[in-house]
Amino acid sequence: MTPSAPLATAAGPDLLGPAEVDRAAERLAGRIRRTPVLPFRPGLRLKAEHLQHSGSFKLRGAANAVLALGARSIVTGSSGNHGIALARLAGELGIELTVVLAGGASPDKAALIRALGARTVAVAGGVAERELRAAELARTTGAVLIPSSDHALVVAGQGTVGREILADAPDTEAIYVPVGGGGLLAGVCLAAWDRPVRVIGVEPAGTPRYARSLAAGHPLRLPACDTVADGLRGQQPGTVTYPIVRDRVDELVTVTDAEVLAAAVLLGRQGVEAEPSGAVALAGALRSGGPERAVAVVSGGNTPAALRAAAARHQLFSPNSLPSPSLSSPEEQSR
């Protein structure tokens, strides 16, 4: 559903609209890589965010928030890639960072976060418990909380993915976007707000939180899900992301773990090393198989091999790579 008027969604002290994506692009100039749109097959191209600095699109939202807020101490909850992006920035800017990880988080992603110099805190349970712990740490320590998706500056930063697609491939008729917490989907919705392009969100079949929430007419919390797409285990839409998605997304589709892994194999055959979460949008595009000129966002390339290589490089060359004592109790620390 392509609306005719700009969005005016309240998100903190300012209104979040397409112009915020433009401001994010200005702020991020020189900080992020303008990733290419690659051919995949006739009628279908790939937005190569697996080539982004830090290995995923998450750097865009993380950097936009960090640069705008100017915080010196940050807490976040992350499945891994947002934490990696923040840890990379924190190391460059001398920021103290604590990353809260839920049960089932990738050990390799946690190891790279620590190699980059950040603290990690492990909590039992799913994404909901992770977010509660991150908010508690921010309150008790005075650190600034930068969520992985449900934050106006993060959403605006992620929207630069869609902005670049529409600039570099202006004939695009549909954009397929992987959906976890919804920050990337909401950002692409903002970038495409008044443009004649369809935006399709692709969710793991085991946790279709946006599809069910939109059907119910309000955000729902789903049980924790153990999908192979470890970066897309969010349990409910956010307060910032939900109204944007509700008012602009054209379609939501679900894909099985088998379809995700098959899409990752296809990407690998073309030299695109994507983690399972990064192959979800392609899986959705392949399932839909429409005649439109489409772009699928390959959102991340942090495979175990890539993560281990990156951690080894940082441990070898960075004198500050050893983690500091955690803000958590010893039993909560992920080591």
Rank of each mutant, 00 (worst) to 15 (best):
V144F: 03
G17K: 00
P42W: 13
A211H: 04
A29R: 15
R45A: 15
V255L: 04
V161G: 04
V127I: 14
R88L: 14
G187F: 03
G125H: 13
L185V: 12
V66G: 02
R209N: 08
V37G: 02
L214I: 13
S106N: 08
I165H: 05
E259A: 14
V298M: 09
V228F: 06
A118K: 07
R41V: 13
A285N: 07
R139Q: 14
A5T: 15
Q270Y: 04
S79Y: 03
G162C: 08
D230T: 14
V127G: 00
A10E: 04
L261H: 00
A63W: 06
K47Y: 10
R221E: 14
T35C: 10
G61C: 07
G183Q: 09
V298N: 02
L86H: 11
S78F: 03
R114Q: 15
P291W: 03
Q158R: 02
N64D: 07
R72K: 15
T141S: 15
P147F: 09
A211I: 02
G117L: 04
G61T: 06
T98Q: 13
V199A: 09
R163E: 12
R130I: 08
I146G: 07
D226E: 14
A87M: 12
H50P: 00
A25E: 12
R27N: 11
V99M: 09
G30W: 06
D108Q: 13
A258I: 01
T120G: 06
G12F: 05
L232C: 05
L7H: 01
A192N: 05
E136S: 14
A258N: 02
H50V: 14
L261T: 10
R293S: 10
G278C: 04
V161A: 13
L86R: 10
F57Y: 15
P219A: 09
A294F: 03
I95L: 02
L307P: 13
S4F: 05
A87H: 09
P107Y: 06
A143N: 05
